[in-house]
Design a protein around this nucleic acid. Structure first.
Length: 499
RNA sequence: GGCCCGUUCGUCUAGCGGUUAGGACACCGCCCUCUCAAGGCGGAGAUCACGGGUUCGAAUCCCGUACGGGCUACCA
């Protein structure tokens, strides 16, 4: 078997999309699995919507996922250039080849005429596509009209003696299209630029692509492309059409479904390993059981016969769960490294302030990683540790600081916290453990009161560890502040005649 | 309209002629417990879209229907 060469050919009309990312992952995995070459090609034939910014975002997105390409932008390669806009000579030459084979002709029909023909032909007899008017034009007169500069496109002439085009899709098996359903597609637009179907085939041929792995939406383009490969006298690559990814409502994935770009997931606290894992499993499976898979294993085990042929709905819940699994699997130092940008980004601390806090962050890490499904969630969880004072949430006060002996309880807790010499979580726990019995309160009542006094909320990191991380001074100060708060509230209540 | 593809718990999937149709997420309950998580245990949830065949036997093979999607562009 010849050396595998596959390509991912995004159009830089937007950022790296979830669906595109999965296509890239499968291409990459297939190439690596077979010791082949992964080519990145930028299909920027749409000058209106293509931007350099999008190209960069796509490269960034791929790299973030851990995908590397052997040929393409910033990597070079013998088959370049890897931007279609830089390959116009190539398409011109290919058009000549097709003309020489007698399979291309100029078409002078205007867009308005075509639209008219389309509508009438389609509804009348179920015919599709172009009616081939210009194919029947006298060759000499057509040539002179072209010569005279009359606006025209170049069309491919589908052979008349063709019955059908069929191919063996690596995922779907045999697919057959009747030749009558194939129309004389446009190869070159009136402005001289190639259409997608043409440019894509020319590039795939010249780049010796052996396997075309792409979205299902291209399945119907395949027979036309096969005809072009054949006319160019180039071996037809193997096609593998991946099922689409849908939004939760079963519709095409769009902004309405929330984030669609890979970088948006990065920015909302997803780990690249988790996104890769989730996407890999959206349409492919290793076996009946495996849900955790890293890129190495993916490369080792990837094959088309385990790619599903039916579309999948993108399930954010499952991605989140998976992300949580990966967060918890991070070792302490790794978690600290990944936590820092979020602390900085949220303005909880400056880089300056963070310096020297590594030991402290390492102590914090396991408490947080166990509770966050996304990295952005760590910010609200740890913010109470980064301020001098906190505000007590009214509903938290109502729930945990409104029992009769609240003030006495907090005072007793504050006193008990003076004793532990090192203020370690075990010492803190020892100091507070006996309090409930002594005060004739339930443990939960006492601990929740302290929690709200110190963190401002009823839900927080484990109490004793939180106090240790806060330090004695701030802990005591916050309990005192809470006591002041209770006094003030009592005065207001009294003034308003409440009990 | 025509052509093509698809259809197994709510979701992702396993299954490739004989299984009590398996796993995961989500959901519910219990345990653990200073809150929240995490974790452990258990539960509910799929007449395999529907109708015909083929076969001793069909989620698995064939045909049809329905529904969904794609293509039918001088978009990609």
């Amino acid at each position: 078997m010849q050396k595998v060469r596959v390509r991912f050919a995004p159009s830089p009309t937007g950022h790296l999309h979830i669906g595109g990312a999965r296509t890239a992952i499968y291409n990459w995995a297939f190439a690596r699995h077979n010791g082949g070459t992964f080519v990145l090609r930028i299909d920027d034939t749409d000058p209106e919507r293509s931007t350099q910014e999008n190209v960069e975002a796509i490269l960034r997105g791929l790299r973030w996922l851990g995908l590397d390409w052997d040929e393409g932008p910033e990597a070079g390669g013998e088959y370049g250039p890897y931007f279609q806009t830089q390959r116009s000579d190539t398409y011109a030459a290919a058009l000549e080849t097709i003309r020489a084979a007698g399979r291309a002709y100029p078409c002078f029909c205007s867009p308005a005429e075509l639209a008219l023909k389309r509508d009438s032909a389609r509804d009348a007899r179920g015919l599709s596509g172009y009616d081939r008017t210009c194919r029947c034009l006298d060759a000499d007169s057509a040539a002179s009209r072209v010569e005279a500069g009359e606006p025209h496109v170049w069309r491919f002439a589908v052979p008349d003696d063709l019955n059908e085009v069929s191919f063996e899709d690596a995922i779907r098996g045999n697919v057959t299209f009747p030749a009558s359903s194939l129309d004389d597609l446009v190869l070159v637009r009136s402005d001289g630029t190639p259409t997608y179907n043409f440019a894509s085939v020319v590039d795939d041929a010249l780049m010796d692509i052996t396997h075309v792995i792409r979205g299902d939406d291209h399945l119907s383009n395949t027979p036309k492309q096969i005809l072009l490969f054949e006319t160019l006298r180039h071996p037809v690559p193997t096609f593998a059409h991946l099922p689409m990814i849908w939004g939760a409502d079963g519709k095409r994935l769009s902004k309405r479904h929330g984030a669609t770009s890979v970088e948006a997931y990065r920015d909302s606290g997803y780990l690249p390993e988790a996104v890769l894992n989730y996407l890999a499993l959206l349409g492919w499976s290793l076996d009946a059981e495996t849900t955790l898979i890293d890129s190495r294993t993916l490369v080792e085990t990837f094959s088309f016969d385990r790619v599903s042929s039916n579309p999948a709905i993108f399930d954010t819940d499952k991605l989140e769960w998976l992300n949580g699994v990966y967060i918890r699997a991070l070792d302490v130092d790794e978690f600290v490294d990944r936590m820092k940008p979020w602390i900085l980004g949220a303005g909880l601390a400056s880089a300056e302030e963070l310096r020297g806090l590594d030991d402290w962050l390492r102590k914090l890490a396991p408490l947080v990683s166990e509770r966050a499904k996304r990295m952005d969630e760590i910010v609200p969880i740890i913010s109470f540790l980064f301020s001098q004072d906190i505000a007590i949430a009214p509903d938290a006060a109502a729930k945990a600081l409104s029992f009769p002996d609240a003030a006495a309880t907090l005072t007793a807790a504050r006193d008990a916290l003076q004793t532990p010499p090192g203020f370690r979580d075990s010492e803190i726990e020892a100091a507070l453990r006996d309090l409930p019995a002594a005060l004739e309160q339930k443990p939960k009542t006492v601990f929740q009161a302290v929690r709200v006094a110190v963190t401002g909320t009823t839900v927080s990191l484990p109490l004793f560890e939180s106090l240790e991380l806060l330090g004695r001074d701030r802990t005591v100060a916050r309990i005192s502040a809470a006591l002041t708060f209770l006094e003030a509230r009592a005065r207001v209540d009294a003034a308003e005649g409440r009990t």
